[in-house]
């Protein structure tokens, strides 16, 4: 069970499907580790379902059901309950984004003891990346160009604010100045969510200062 969670607003946007792609993937990753937030999302979905049922009904096309049945005739089998997924190292959605294995990704190393690879840039300009810190490695002091969210997916790290383990969903404000250090007993893998640097007001709703150096 993790100690750092998305906000209620973020969980509500996730449940109603209105968050951006990259944000939704980050929240889904957190949910993989956090039962309490899974329950909250399910509660939100239950509430949404009440509103859904109370809508004014819209008239359907007269031939709708016949069209549906003729499509179904072409695939008559009702699927059996899904077989349990093979256990994977990272949450399934992250495995899918990595495609093969972490070594086949395109890595760069912006700072000592840290390498990063971009997994996805979404429709709002949020960039989802994978970060890897070697066990015990300390990344030099730095601040962030914009606001950033990190989700630990393996291992753990500490900085001046606290220490974090798998599933922790950490909001870092743009002015946050820190020097994270991976735990000594294993490498640390993180998902990171940042605003693309070109925007003045990013999709996370915070003002990004273009004069701050990364």
């Amino acid at each position: 069970m993790s100690n750092w969670h998305p906000t209620n607003d973020q969980l509500l946007e996730f449940a109603s499907g209105t968050g951006s792609s990259a944000m939704s993937i980050a929240i889904s990753t957190h949910l993989h580790f956090c039962q309490a937030c899974r329950h909250q999302v399910h509660d939100n979905e239950s509430m949404a379902a009440v509103l859904f049922e109370e809508q004014t009904r819209a008239d359907l096309a007269g031939d709708g059901f016949d069209r549906l049945m003729s499509r179904i005739q072409n695939e008559p089998t009702v699927s059996a309950p899904k077989a349990p997924k093979a256990p994977s190292r990272f949450p399934p959605v992250i495995e899918k984004l990595i495609h093969k294995d972490t070594e086949s990704l395109d890595w760069r190393s912006p700072m000592k003891n840290l390498r990063v690879s971009q997994l996805l840039k979404d429709e709002t300009g949020l960039i989802l990346g994978l970060h890897h810190m070697k066990s015990g490695g300390r990344v030099p002091h730095h601040t962030h160009r914009g606001n950033e969210i990190s989700v630990v997916i393996e291992g753990g790290f500490s900085d001046e604010m606290g220490s974090y383990g798998p599933g922790d969903f950490i909001h870092l404000a743009g002015e946050h100045f820190h020097s994270p250090q991976a735990d000594a007993d294993g490498d640390c893998w993180l998902l990171s969510l940042v605003e693309a640097p070109v925007k003045l007001t990013g999709p996370l709703g915070w003002l990004v200062n273009p004069f701050l150096k990364p």
Binding site: G17, S21, I25, S28, R38, K82, V93, L120
Partner: peptide, 14 residues
């Protein structure tokens, strides 16, 4: 992108 909604909103394991 290659991620479908079912990959992200899949809470069946719970």
């Amino acid at each position: 992108n290659d991620v479908d909604a079912d990959d992200v909103w899949d809470l069946e394991g719970d």
